[in-house]
Simulated assay, not measured.
Amino acid sequence: MKFHTRKWVKPEDLNPNRSLFGGRLLAWIDEEAALYSVVQLENPHVVTKYMSEINFMASAKQGDIVEIGIDVVKFGRTSLILRCEVRNMMTRETIITVENITMVNLDEHGRPIPHGKTKVEYVKDRLQNKI
């Protein structure tokens, strides 16, 4: 799994127990999945359709740094299915895994459209193909 993003847990990210608020973490995951999908599908019109069951296994506290990792599980016709793992860099514990995040590729009118992708592409490879 490639970990693309790190977040520093700040006071505004905490719940009343002074640990990382689950809703904040889910927002970070959703944003990371969207960014990853936009880059992979080369389309800014991508939305979250589904997020599977979640299970918090550990936590983070103020000052901790968490890493968000994304892997592609499957390319659908109009969708991209991702897996996510978030880990605490300080404790090396996995905070949460999400086995299925389904992102859907849309046209400018908000309708699902085929994306034509079948494998993970890296920006460096796209640049080489255009030269």
Score class of each variant (00 low, 15 high):
Val38Thr: 00
Ile131Asp: 10
Ile96Val: 14
Asn15Pro: 05
Ala58Met: 10
Val38Tyr: 01
Ile131His: 11
Met51Thr: 12
Lys119Cys: 12
Leu35Trp: 01
Val47Asp: 06
Asn17Phe: 14
Asp64Arg: 10
His115Gln: 09
Ala27Gly: 12
Asn43Pro: 02
Asp13Tyr: 00
Leu80Ser: 12
Lys61Asn: 05
Gln40Gly: 01
Asp107Leu: 07
Thr102Tyr: 06
Val73Arg: 11
Thr91Gly: 08
Glu31Thr: 13
Met89Glu: 14
Ile54Tyr: 02
Glu85Ser: 13
Gly63Gln: 05
Lys124Arg: 08
Ser19Leu: 14
Lys7Cys: 09
Trp28Thr: 04
Phe75Cys: 09
Cys84Val: 15
Lys49Trp: 07
Arg92Val: 07
Thr118Lys: 13
Tyr122Leu: 12
Lys124Pro: 01
Met51Ser: 12
Glu12His: 12
Val72Trp: 00
Gly23Asn: 02
Asn15Ile: 05
Arg87Ala: 09
Tyr50Pro: 06
Tyr50Gln: 11
Ser19Phe: 14
Ala58Gln: 11
Lys61Ile: 04
Leu82Gly: 07
Gly23Val: 03
Pro16Ala: 15
Glu85Gly: 10
Tyr50Asp: 06
Glu93Thr: 10
Arg92Leu: 14
Asn15Val: 11
His4Ile: 06
Phe21Asp: 10
Arg87Glu: 13
Val72Ala: 05
Arg111Val: 10
Glu108Ala: 13
Asn129Met: 13
Asp30Glu: 12
Leu106Met: 15
Ile29Asn: 07
Lys124Cys: 06
Val98Phe: 00
Ile70Tyr: 05
Pro11Leu: 11
Leu41Gly: 00
Ile29Ala: 10
Arg6His: 04
Ile96Asp: 08
Phe56Tyr: 03
Gly110Lys: 04
Pro44Tyr: 05
Glu53Leu: 14
Trp28Gly: 05
Glu42Leu: 11
Ile101Lys: 05
Glu99Gln: 14
Pro112Ala: 09
Leu20Asp: 05
Leu80Met: 09
Ser19Gln: 15
Gly63Cys: 04
Val46Gln: 05
Lys2Phe: 08
Leu106Ile: 07
Lys130Pro: 01
Arg18Tyr: 11
Ile101Met: 08
Val46Pro: 03
Arg6Trp: 00
Glu85Met: 13
Glu85Thr: 13
Lys7Met: 02
Ser79Thr: 05
Ile131Glu: 11
Leu26Pro: 00
Glu85Tyr: 05
Glu93Phe: 08
Ala33Ser: 15
Val39His: 01
Arg77Val: 10
Ser52Phe: 04
Gly116Ile: 05
Gln40Ala: 02
Ser37Asp: 06
Arg18Ala: 13
Thr48Phe: 07
Asn129Pro: 02
Lys10Ala: 14
Asn129Ile: 06
Asn105Ile: 00
Val9Glu: 02
Ala58His: 12
Asn55Leu: 13
Met90Ala: 13
Asn129Val: 08
Met103Asp: 03
Val123His: 04
Thr91Trp: 03
Pro114Arg: 09
Tyr36Leu: 10
Gly22Ala: 08
Val73Gly: 01
Gly23Phe: 00
Met90Lys: 15
Pro11Phe: 11
Ser37His: 01
Gly110Ser: 01
Arg18Ser: 13
Arg83Gln: 09
Tyr50Met: 09
Thr94Trp: 11
Met90Asn: 13
Arg87Cys: 12
Glu42Ser: 07
Val39Lys: 03
Glu85Trp: 04
Ser59Cys: 12
Gln40Pro: 03
Lys124Ile: 11
Asp71Lys: 10
Ile96Phe: 02
Thr102Val: 15
